Amino acid sequence: MPDATEEVFFSYSRSDEALVLKIASALRRDGRHVWVDQIDIAKGARWDDEVEKALKASSCLLAILSPAAVASQNVMDEVSYALGEKKKVIPVLAKQCDIPFRLKRLQFVDFTGDYDRGYRELSAALDGGAAPPRRDDGVPPGASSRRTQQAVIGGAVVVVAAVAGYLVLGRPTPAPAPAPVVVAPPPPAVQPAPVVAKREPEPAPVAPPVQPAPVAPPPPAPPPVVAAAPPPAPVFVPPPAPAPMKQAVASDRQLTDFVHRYISTQNRSSPTDLVAFYADEVEYFNEKHATKAFILKDRLNFQRRWPEVDNRLAGPIDIDRSSGDGTAVLSYTIRYGVRSLERGDSKSGMARDELRVRPVDGQLLIVGQRQKILNAQAN
């Protein structure tokens, strides 16, 4: 279970806010406490005072790394403070960049490829469990293949040299027994499997050891070389990704449950949780290509204006699958009510909502939204 008392502080550049908001939203859904300046600084508060207060209160800092973040003095100052205070620091690679010297010796989480795998590794790191493989040489992902190839070639040369020497000198005499030939183990970054593969095409037949005889049989492959080969190192197998939805099209039950959960989240006045229902790009009312960051800002503004929301389903949910591409149009009527105690203002009425939803990576997400007010009144 996540540690609900641990405050996770996001240190990042504004150019990476889309990924930051996506990760923060997922962590909050998992029950973790996170702090993001765009969401958690109250309107009118001093930005630097709030950041300093949150940084001191946090027990873990996520350093979202990208070329812009590495060049940001604010991000590097926050990282230095967290390291100096002995806080947990987890580097998160958002975009390929030169990792700062002070972070090279720390385990990092890679989000430049598979998002789901990166999120699983981040959750494990926050729980203090297994972390991504350590890169002690400080080389960013994708830059170590050249060293691996050089190490494999070096290991192959050692084996070939040992076999050649054995063939030149001939088979050892019965007494005394020859000393085992010790083959130096390959460098730590190289697994021994390629070395064994080099010996498979040897033309000489491999015979079991025999007692010495007056007439020496054809020389077998030298047993000491085989005995000296180290056992294969265990291979890290990542946990399987969550199974996608088996259905290409969601069932009626899944679609109606989706609407009920969406309305319930609206009533909790939780913009961050509500944004999790949307795809990365949405036709959002009059916006043709709205991002999650845009939707989050819109929902935060609505919450500041109307802190209390009460939406209730007022009829059946109509489902239209005529598009044929897996998209379903969900139409329903709600009885809404909003109120602001601070302003002493409230409104209520009826509205017709329309959601276009589609399975994306095994999850139902909103790809389009419209609303028509049927009647409204000020209370």
Results as ranks from 00 to 15, higher is better:
Gln149Glu: 14
Ala276Pro: 07
Ala161Met: 08
Ala161Val: 10
Leu330Pro: 13
Val195Cys: 01
Pro242Phe: 15
Lys104Trp: 00
Phe302His: 07
Ser346Ile: 02
Ser348Ala: 08
Val360Ser: 06
Thr112Asn: 03
Gly170Asn: 05
Ile366Cys: 05
Tyr115Asn: 02
Pro205His: 13
Val183Tyr: 05
Ala351Lys: 04
Trp306Cys: 07
Arg321Lys: 13
Leu255Arg: 11
Val282Leu: 10
Lys43Gln: 11
Arg105Lys: 15
Cys60Gln: 08
Gln377Glu: 12
Lys292Phe: 02
Val92Asn: 01
Leu300Lys: 01
Leu93Arg: 00
Ser11Leu: 05
Ala82Phe: 05
Ala82Ile: 08
Val196Met: 06
Pro212Lys: 06
Ala42Glu: 01
Gln254Gly: 07
Val225Leu: 15
Glu17Leu: 05
Ala376Trp: 14
Ala162Met: 09
Gly368Arg: 02
Val196Leu: 14
Glu202Ala: 13
Leu61Asn: 00
Glu283Ile: 10
Leu167Tyr: 03
Leu61Ala: 01
Ala164Tyr: 09
Pro186Leu: 13
Gly118Ser: 08
Glu354Pro: 00
Val190Gly: 00
Arg171Glu: 08
Gly155Pro: 00
Val237His: 14
Ala197Met: 06
Ala328Arg: 06
Glu50Ala: 12
Ala204Gln: 15
Pro224Gly: 09
Leu330His: 13
Ile319Thr: 12
Gly129Arg: 06
Ser66Lys: 05
Pro187His: 12
Leu255Val: 12
Ala124Trp: 05
Phe285Lys: 12
Trp306Ile: 07
Leu313Asn: 09
Ala229Pro: 01
Asp127Met: 00
Val168Gln: 13
Val275Lys: 00
Ser66Met: 10
Gly315Leu: 10
Val160Asn: 04
Ser144Asn: 15
Ala156Pro: 01
Gly344Gln: 12
Ile295Asn: 00
Val357Phe: 09
